[in-house]
């Protein structure tokens, strides 16, 4: 399994350890952090916390499939992802994507591909608490 969807604080070290090896000349890490603001109807509004909910069994399966696919498309890369669930405060990490490869270019490319696809297909949701009230991100009217 190339990922963990967990209710505990994420570990940068654990993620790097999963991909680091002696043949890797680069490790690229993307940290997704809880931001203190968001856009609602074109307005910038303050955010105080986020609640993350996941369909854990499926999210792990979907992210694992993405990681395997990206490793195949970017030869030499190794991918590991941790995603958080539960209530997060501003500044906390919601996701860690770690990718190693012999050369940096493939690691940057793979890391961007993994986070883009995760955001598109992993069954994970977030609810914003802030000046604009409480709402599920991405849900239309």
């Amino acid at each position: 399994m190339h990922c963990e969807v967990i209710a505990l604080p994420l570990s940068l070290d654990a993620c790097v350890a999963r991909v680091k090896h002696t043949g890797a000349g680069a490790v690229v890490v993307m940290l997704g952090c809880v931001r203190d603001h968001t856009q609602q109807q074109g307005q910038v509004v303050a955010v105080t916390q986020l609640d993350y909910e996941a369909y854990v069994e499926m999210a792990e399966q979907v992210i694992d499939a993405i990681a395997v696919d990206v490793e195949g498309a970017c030869p030499g890369t190794r991918v590991f992802v941790q995603h958080r669930t539960g209530t997060l405060q501003v500044g906390e990490w919601a996701v860690v994507v770690a990718v190693s490869s012999p050369h940096r270019k493939e690691a940057f490319t793979a890391c961007a591909a993994v986070i883009d696809r995760l955001k598109q297909d992993a069954p994970i949701w977030k609810r914003e608490h802030g000046a604009g009230g409480v709402s599920w991100v991405g849900l239309g009217p």
Binding site: G32, A54, A94, Q120, P123, W125, G138
Partner: peptide, 24 residues
């Protein structure tokens, strides 16, 4: 797994309603 509208759901399946996702 995400399913197409034509997929047949057989006895004993687990079906999830997946609203727009917002991970990351």
């Amino acid at each position: 797994r995400f399913a197409s509208e034509d997929e047949i759901v057989v006895d004993g399946s687990e079906v999830a309603v997946v609203p727009p996702v917002a991970g990351g």
